[in-house]
Design a protein around this nucleic acid. Structure first.
Length: 182
DNA sequence: GCGTCGATCTAC
DNA sequence: TAGATCGACGCG
């Protein structure tokens, strides 16, 4: 099983889970330009460069769901980096996040856009990602992973979108946007 | 149990 | 700029 996973990872060039087990502010910009890959149950593969992400960091960050502490919904954020955190919002959209950091340190990266699809709600719809991915790890056998890309990507930062309620935390420049893809 | 509101998107 | 639409959360 572990061998099979390693082989799959090599074949697919998937990023290993320990890539995500570092501070979210270091990992988030590194995801820009890398490939989000989704293998559907019918075998079809969708693969596109990530061009926009946001970092959510710890219980102190009022924009982060973990600011409410560990609950049924936020539990996955406390797991170690490489897990998938998907939640439902506005009664109709799923948001795709990648957990980062070590166990017990709630952090995650919201994947907002790829070259193909702009916007986090439209993204999960396009890649057919829903609640069933919540708590799984990024891997080819789970049908969702991220592939490396050595290309260097230029980016800029801005405050995060849609977190007006987060007091001084709304100003943190934790949205990362790749240049030259818009 | 009930009211509020959200890491969004679309159409008017 | 409002409406869709529902689960998580806080309050009691």
């Amino acid at each position: 099983m572990a061998t099979e996973r390693r082989q799959n990872s090599l074949l697919s060039n998937a990023l290993p889970l320990d890539f995500f087990q570092d501070d979210v502010l270091r990992v988030a910009p590194l995801l820009l330009g890398k490939y989000l890959v989704r293998k559907l149950s019918n075998g079809a593969i969708k693969r596109s460069k990530i061009i926009e992400v946001e970092a959510y960091r710890g219980e102190e960050d009022l924009a982060c769901h973990a600011s409410k502490g560990k609950t049924k919904r936020t539990e996955v954020m406390y797991w170690q980096g490489g897990h998938i955190y998907v939640y439902f919002i506005y009664g109709m959209y799923y948001m795709l996040n990648i957990v980062t950091g070590k166990e017990h340190c709630p952090q995650a990266i919201l994947i907002r856009s790829t070259e193909e699809v702009k916007g986090p709600g439209r993204l999960t719809k396009f890649y057919e990602i829903d609640k069933t991915f919540n708590g799984k790890v990024l891997s080819p056998e789970n049908g969702l992973w991220i592939e490396n890309n050595l290309e260097k990507v230029e980016y800029y930062t801005t405050p995060r979108i849609g977190v007006e309620y987060a007091k001084e935390w709304k100003l943190k420049p934790w949205r990362y946007v790749a240049k030259n893809y818009w």
